Computed example of a mutant assay.
Amino acid sequence: MNGLSGFFRNLNRNKAILFMVLPGALWFLIFSYIPMAGTILAFKEYRISRHGFIDSIISSAWVGLDNFKFLFSTSDAWIITRNTLLYNITFIVIGLVAAVAMAIVLSEIANKKLSKLYQTGMFLPYFLSWVIVGYFAFSFLSLDKGLLNQFLVKLGIDPINWYSDPTYWPFILIFISMWKAIGYNSVVYLASIMGIDRSLYEAAMIDGANKWQQIRNVTLPMLTPLMTIMTLLAIGKIFYADFGLFYQVPRDSGALYSVTNVIDTYVYRGLKTTGEFGMITAAGLYQSFVGLVLVLTSNWVVGKVNKDNTLF
């Protein structure tokens, strides 16, 4: 009884903090933990029953790992896996370097009002939906009226049918992804830079360090723990692709599937064709499981190098 009464006293003492945490806890409970019960669909041939969702799950036939075979039973399995992994690895590496570099540049701008203006301008693309971004890209890449093709014509170069030629799309997708995300990603590092003790820079200046030496010997080492954590979190989603980027921006052009088809778009098209909920649940479970293994492995490797930089 004493333990129980002490528990309620602690709840009452910390009620203000608990109320602050409550919205986030409810969000995770409703959208992350309760839906985990639905992962059983990955092992069933789901069929809708008139008696409700729960009865549909219970009455659906057990098929074991058959739903997982969908991802690997076609010739597209290698393409979608390759594209998903290579794009995400590129996004992680280039995104990390670009975000840190941009955060450092913004922190070095003496005029703080101008720095805030730049931050706002860079942050704006993050709030645009991929549908809008897709139309922006189309206004540049359209064969007839695209700004880029009009510019090529003025230079005496034949216009390029961008939506039928997969050669350029890996670079286009990487550029658009970085343009949209760099502002958001750099804010995290910029906040960390602002929290670095100024006396460290003053000591470096007294020792004769120039600006680059200050960045290399003070800023980057202080950012290393945050960079490691952000990278580990990104690795956890390495088998997830940004659906809007790979579906809306290329306008679902079949000619570009060899470089734009990823696990998420492949499963979406399969769901539209077959209507198999078990298949899409299996794909999500597969992505989550691989992500979990990669995070645990990466965190273990980081712990062997420096335990202070681990995620947990």
Rank of each mutant, 00 (worst) to 15 (best):
N2A: 14
N2F: 11
G3K: 14
L4P: 03
S5D: 13
S5H: 09
S5I: 12
F7D: 02
R9Y: 11
L11F: 07
K15I: 15
F19T: 15
G24H: 06
A25W: 09
F31C: 10
I34E: 11
P35W: 00
I40S: 05
I48H: 05
I48C: 02
S49Y: 00
R50D: 12
G52Y: 06
I58H: 01
S60T: 08
S60K: 05
S60E: 02
V63Q: 05
G64E: 07
G64N: 03
D66T: 10
N67H: 10
K69Q: 13
F70A: 10
T74H: 09
S75H: 12
D76T: 09
W78Q: 12
I80N: 00
L85V: 08
L85F: 00
L86N: 00
T90G: 14
I92Y: 02
L96A: 08
M102F: 12
M102T: 12
L106A: 08
K113M: 10
Y118R: 01
T120Y: 13
G121F: 09
I132V: 15
F136V: 14
A137T: 08
S139D: 13
S139V: 12
S142N: 13
D144F: 08
G146C: 07
L147V: 15
L148R: 05
Q150N: 15
F151H: 15
L152F: 10
L152E: 07
L152S: 01
L155F: 12
D158S: 15
I160Q: 00
W162V: 07
S164M: 11
T167A: 12
T167F: 09
F171V: 11
I174R: 04
I176S: 04
S177I: 01
W179H: 05
W179G: 03
K180P: 04
I182W: 03
Y184V: 01
N185Y: 10
S192Q: 15
D197C: 14
R198F: 09
L200W: 02
M205P: 06
G208K: 13
G208I: 12
W212P: 00
W212L: 15
Q214P: 09
V218E: 06
V218M: 14
T219F: 06
T219G: 06
T224I: 13
I229M: 14
T231F: 04
A234T: 12
I235N: 04
I235M: 12
I235E: 00
G236L: 07
I238F: 00
F239D: 03
A241S: 15
V249Y: 02
P250C: 08
R251C: 03
V262W: 06
V262F: 05
D264E: 14
T265S: 10
Y268T: 01
R269H: 08
T273W: 05
F277K: 02
T281G: 07
Y286F: 14
Q287N: 04
S288L: 01
G291E: 04
L292T: 14
L294S: 01
L296Q: 04
T297G: 09
N299G: 10
V302W: 00
G303P: 08
V305H: 10
K307Q: 13
L311D: 02
L311H: 05
